[in-house]
Nucleic acid binder design. Structure first.
Lengths: 271, 271
DNA sequence: CAGTGGTCTAGACCACGCT
DNA sequence: GCGTGGTCTAGACCACTGT
């Protein structure tokens, strides 16, 4: 505005307790929560925000980074910053596995834990599968209690709720090759298999009696970010799963799900 | 390379497929994982990294932000960037609540789910407690199935593994005031209470038969970041817990834990 | 092509921790 | 006081998405 003093470079204008980029982030969050900016629509472009808040581009981008990390928005390169429309769905662990057990017992059909989570009809989802027999590495050998280097059948999956929609989940799972090699379970043509891994193992006469899940949260790796179409600052759940037949682990899996799209539900009973 | 054209300002030097700040982050990660930079020690200061990688400060800071979001390092303002020493602990949901049930039944003593998680002796932890009777808001009323505005006893907790160490967990929990107001359970002087909420409710003749947990992951809010001493880019688990006596919810809680320090373990039994 | 976000530079002032 | 990270500016070039 008025120029009275000589300054070499841009000064920091009145240091406030909460930094400028946080204030901007809070204001934008408020507008989204108040419905002033519609869910699913685009945020004003960076130049507009720079003008409105009288801030440099870096500051505006820092503010957007905050919202991105909260999962409130995500950015698409040449397009803009999109306010997320989706509300999180609950991945209820016991319900989903119980559904698979029901299929294995012939009490239900045409579902898999993924369709249960997303409340999807059977024909409205798509699964990409790759199956390969490989040597187990330290991690999988540990999860399945195998000797190092023993062979496993690895299955890589990408799930999409709609045939051409974005991927919502990716996973790798392993079963001992000694158990499944050469069986219909190892044939990718049989996917998606109703009732998932539990039903697959049941078809081989193996009854899964317990499932353990370990949950971590972290930033996505680059291949995960690419497959799941995640922008910088996104967070993923990584679920390490083991299925047991008695005390013997018979399947292991690592499941990656964007954390802003789901909530993980678990129950613990006294019994 | 060869300079033929006049440029006003710093050019972007040789655009590579993976951005510069990611390359730097990868290189630093490698050094940490190879032990070249020791766990618990400080990363070289920004100016040193700028010199070594011939990059501007912003670029170096972007690289460090990547490591921070991965939970590999955390920054302390006037001190430096610290490489995290801790390995994640597992918060095994059924074990921890089973331990509390054992206390409630008089089968064990001097423990609480937090000390179980951290494998701590009883006298080596500290708990900060505030207890207050308030009106329930929409969220707590929903979790406890109360009429809107019905009163609840709110308990705010901060856990520290060592008396003066950093906080590792913070939570708020609510019980219906009609159940606990005026009882020893509502007296903060009785904290820490062996066996936690389950034992507290048991002392009132209420038997918890089921615990449900819903897990989300997100960036910490500012008060959480302050209490847990989190740097920017950190991720927290938010566990929403309900304890049930039969079909009646008797306690609700929201537990916030930094995601880089724990792994959440759950088991699902075929039953 | 214009407009969007992605990356980078160079320099400045500020707040914090230590000695 | 000095060195550390935290915030901010101003400007540049690049890559992607739309028309």
């Amino acid at each position: 505005m008025s120029a009275t003093e000589p300054r070499k470079v841009a000064p920091v204008p009145a240091q406030t307790p909460t930094p400028r980029f946080r204030q901007i982030a809070d204001e934008l969050r408020k507008r989204i929560e108040d419905g002033e900016i519609e869910r699913g629509s685009l945020l004003p472009p960076e130049p507009a925000l720079m003008a409105e808040f009288e801030a440099a581009r870096g500051t505006v981008r820092d503010a957007i980074a905050v919202l991105r990390q909260d999962g409130l928005v995500h950015t698409e390169h040449g397009r803009g910053t999109v306010v997320r429309p989706e509300l999180p769905i609950t991945r209820q662990a016991d319900d989903r596995y119980r559904a698979d057990w029901a299929v294995a017992d012939g009490l239900a059909a045409q579902q898999t834990s993924f369709t249960v989570d997303h409340n999807l009809p059977w024909d409205r989802h798509r699964l990409e599968v790759e199956v390969e027999e490989v040597e187990s590495d330290d991690v999988t050998a540990g999860l399945l209690v195998l000797a190092a280097g023993e062979r496993v059948v690895e299955r890589r999956l990408v799930f999409r709720p709609k045939p051409r929609g974005r991927a919502e989940q990716m996973s790798r799972s392993w079963m001992p090759a000694s158990l499944v090699a050469g069986t219909p379970v190892a044939d990718p043509a049989n996917e998606p298999w109703e009732g998932g891994s539990i039903a697959q193992l049941a078809s081989l006469g193996v009854e899964v009696t317990e499932v353990r899940e370990h949950v971590r949260a972290r930033a996505p790796k680059s291949d995960e970010a690419a497959t799941l179409v995640l922008s910088a600052g996104a967070i993923v759940f990584v679920i390490t799963r083991q299925m047991f037949a008695g005390s013997q682990p018979v399947e292991a899996a690592e499941i990656v799900i964007p954390a802003d799209r789901v909530e993980l539900g678990y129950r613990i009973f006294r019994s």
